[in-house]
């Protein structure tokens, strides 16, 4: 079973995308989408992605809600920074953060979350020293950035994957 369907979730997502593009739920399109999804999952086998297993899948919803709220808040904050008067210059800077997260896929998710949030951008991660270099737009009310990222994102991701 595992041999014929190596990545069932990926196949299902591909089929869903196929149906959305074609805007139909006819049996023919479902069959074609399923065939495409299964055959493309075989291509994925050659890439050998590192496998991870989610321990507590129900925590995904809570993490997603946190991310949506934070992205909305940070949008408003960045708009304030951009529209500020010229005599108060933007005080941005680099923040080095030491992470304890090991799992590659969890790190990738953390990178996407941090970069999708407008106030912070992930620049570089050194896997030997486990130090992440983050650029923060408004560092004045961001003195506790390292602590915030550790408690708000890293702890839930750790709970989810490790």
């Amino acid at each position: 079973m595992r041999y014929w369907f190596p990545y069932p979730l990926l196949s299902f997502a591909l089929m869903l995308f196929w149906l959305l593009i074609n805007q139909s739920l006819s049996p023919a399109q479902i069959l074609l989408g399923a065939a495409l999804g299964i055959s493309h999952a075989w291509l994925m086998v050659n890439l050998r992605p590192t496998k991870t297993h989610m321990k507590k899948a129900w925590l995904v919803g809570r993490l997603m809600a946190t991310v949506v709220i934070d992205v909305a808040k940070s949008n408003i904050m960045v708009m304030g920074v951009i529209l500020r008067r010229r005599n108060r210059p933007v005080n941005s800077g680099f923040v080095p953060i030491h992470l304890t997260l090991r799992d590659e896929n969890a790190l990738a998710i953390l990178a996407c979350i941090l970069t999708a949030t407008p106030g912070s951008a992930w620049l570089e991660f050194d896997s030997q020293t486990q130090v992440l270099l983050l650029h923060v737009l408004d560092i004045e009310n961001g003195t506790a950035w390292a602590e915030l990222i550790r408690t708000r994102y890293e702890a839930p991701l750790k709970e989810l994957f490790e």
Binding site: V71, V78, F94, A116, T117, P118, A121
Partner: peptide, 12 residues
């Protein structure tokens, strides 16, 4: 590096 944050507004 500050400008790197700006297009995220439109994209999110």
């Amino acid at each position: 590096y500050s400008r790197l944050h700006a297009p995220t507004l439109g994209a999110s």
